[in-house]
């Protein structure tokens, strides 16, 4: 092969490789406590035992957040480990405490953005862990606010030191999420369902969520109290459930 042709072929191969490597976009991760975090449990969506709750802060400490493209879609109901072909890690979330009441205009908390190979990120893993530093070191979730019922008002601080690992499949919501295309932005969301903790008065008492939820009566004395969140499946991806294990 003459040298010029060899050089041009090499350059062409390099360009092809470069273009293939450039097939990536930006994946941004948000957390969302929904209106129950930002607006509170307001009538008719009171707690299952009839309390109006307003939150000043809802601190959650996250760790080990990864997003994956899987060969086979992850089935959270079946559990196990996602069959990942591509995994990206949000380094900023090695440990990060967020406040679900401190949101952007869309009611979400931005966790971070990373450059990610294009494809559909249809699985997410993350953990809720006790904070190593800060005012609430040792606690993984802290809910601070005011509860009102029948003219009685109590200030409360509910703390949990429980650690949980979440393994979730695809986000389920108004739109499908996680489609990263070359040079474009996509997003994913970790969603916290506070009604799984306190229940909802606008749902049937027989609703399985209400049967499991703690309600607020047990915390009506106010002040700082511990709350056990194990088994309540607070974390979701949109409306999609996750496999949860206690750390």
């Amino acid at each position: 092969m003459p040298m010029p042709r060899l050089v041009s072929s090499t350059l062409l191969a390099g360009l092809l490789l470069a273009s293939a490597a450039a097939a990536e976009g930006t994946l941004t991760l948000f957390a969302n406590g929904e209106e129950l975090a930002t607006e509170g449990f307001v009538a008719p969506a009171l707690t299952r035992d009839g309390w109006d709750l307003r939150f000043d802060h809802i601190y959650v400490t996250l760790a080990g957040v990864t997003a994956m493209q899987t060969n086979t879609p992850y089935d959270a109901a079946a559990g196990g480990t996602p069959d990942a072909k591509t995994t990206v890690t949000f380094d900023d979330t090695e440990q990060l405490t967020i406040d679900l009441t401190d949101t952007d205009a869309d009611g979400r908390v931005r966790i971070g953005s990373i450059t990610a190979p294009e494809g559909h990120y249809n699985a997410v893993t993350w953990s809720i862990v006790p904070a190593e530093t800060g005012d609430w070191a040792g606690q993984s979730m802290v809910l601070i606010g005011t509860a009102t019922r029948d003219g009685e008002t109590v200030d409360f601080t509910l703390t949990s030191a429980d650690g949980h690992d979440y393994t979730c499949g695809e986000y389920v919501g108004d739109d499908r999420k996680g489609f990263v295309t070359d040079g474009a932005e996509a997003d994913l969301e970790l969603t916290f369902h506070l009604d799984h903790v306190f229940g909802r008065a606008d749902r049937e008492a027989t609703d399985s969520m209400n049967r499991l939820a703690l309600g607020f009566d047990d915390f009506a004395a106010g002040g700082t109290q511990e709350i056990a969140l194990s088994g309540l499946h607070v974390g979701h991806v949109g409306e999609g459930h996750c496999a949860v294990s206690l750390r």
């Binding site: 088994g231 499946h233 459930h241």
Partner: peptide, 8 residues
Amino acid sequence: MSVMSVRV
């Protein structure tokens, strides 16, 4: 008690 989830 079972946790509320949805399965298709």
